[in-house]
Simulated scan of single mutants.
Amino acid sequence: MTRTYLPGILAMAAIVVASNILVQFLFGQWLTWGAFTYPLAFLVTDVMNRLYGASAARRVVLVGFVVGLICSLIGTQIMGEFGLLVTIRIAVASGTAFLVAQLLDVTIFNRFRDGAWWRAPLVSTLISSAIDTALFFSIAFSASLSFIHPATDVAWATEALPLLGAGPVAPLWISLAVADWSVKLAIALIALIPFRLLTARLTARA
């Protein structure tokens, strides 16, 4: 690691810690406050990738993964109102989704690096955030994957309800996943503005 990467490392660590804390607090019926901070991890990865290349971005991702792992391990030792703050299954889901999606983001960004300035961050974030959502919610809550940690009770998440309260009947975790990805989609579009400003400013200083 070099001092050049330190701002990205600190930003990623702060986002991961904040998201692990804020995921404990509900926002409406389908989301938690963590849904609004976590997508910023993709912004950090993309800015680092644009400024310093894929190797630097992967280093920042690995730091985020380690910080997230530490947060999860701490969470498995803390009892909340409804049990452990973080179950083993959720810890596995969180770590797997983060690492796979963020590394995929780096790869896709590189594929579109030479196109229009917005293409690489937008395409990489849209695809990788979709994978992130699919991996996390299916690993954490799908009844078909209960073998990951049979002791984790996910009955509440598999309850059949109308999708987002109005659509076809589906397990509750599907509604949670759709709502989560919708936020990621919105933030991916909004994040193009700070991405452009940050990369332009930092490139000019170089």
Score class of each variant (00 low, 15 high):
199 T>E: 05
184 K>V: 12
167 G>P: 12
19 S>I: 04
3 R>T: 14
144 S>P: 00
34 G>T: 02
206 A>D: 13
128 S>I: 11
15 I>C: 06
36 F>N: 01
20 N>G: 11
190 I>E: 02
108 I>V: 15
108 I>K: 03
28 G>R: 11
33 W>T: 00
65 F>H: 02
57 A>Q: 03
181 W>C: 07
84 L>F: 04
74 I>V: 15
106 V>K: 07
134 A>N: 10
64 G>A: 06
127 I>S: 03
31 L>T: 04
55 S>N: 06
34 G>Y: 01
72 S>D: 15
30 W>D: 04
61 V>E: 02
129 S>I: 08
52 Y>L: 07
156 W>H: 08
67 V>F: 03
20 N>S: 05
70 I>W: 00
154 V>C: 03
21 I>P: 01
7 P>M: 09
151 A>M: 11
197 L>K: 09
43 L>S: 06
81 E>I: 11
164 L>Y: 08
26 L>A: 14
165 G>W: 12
153 D>G: 05
93 A>T: 03
146 S>Y: 00
16 V>T: 15
71 C>I: 08
138 S>I: 13
157 A>G: 06
1 M>C: 06
3 R>L: 14
54 A>F: 00
81 E>S: 13
115 G>H: 14
8 G>Y: 09
153 D>M: 06
196 R>L: 11
150 P>M: 08
120 A>W: 07
90 I>F: 09
162 P>D: 13
18 A>K: 04
38 Y>D: 01
13 A>R: 12
84 L>C: 00
158 T>E: 13
55 S>V: 04
154 V>G: 02
26 L>E: 13
1 M>G: 14
186 A>E: 05
65 F>I: 04
113 R>G: 01
119 R>N: 03
133 T>G: 11
152 T>M: 07
26 L>S: 15
44 V>T: 13
138 S>Y: 14
66 V>A: 12
62 L>D: 03
179 A>H: 12
193 I>K: 00
85 L>Q: 12
29 Q>A: 12
12 M>Y: 09
127 I>Y: 02
17 V>P: 03
56 A>N: 01
198 L>N: 01
99 L>C: 02
165 G>L: 08
132 D>G: 07
62 L>P: 00
147 F>W: 15
162 P>W: 13
2 T>A: 04
42 F>Y: 15
156 W>T: 08
86 V>P: 00
140 A>K: 10
161 L>E: 14
66 V>K: 03
11 A>G: 10
39 P>D: 01
172 L>Y: 15
80 G>H: 07
119 R>Y: 02
76 T>N: 08
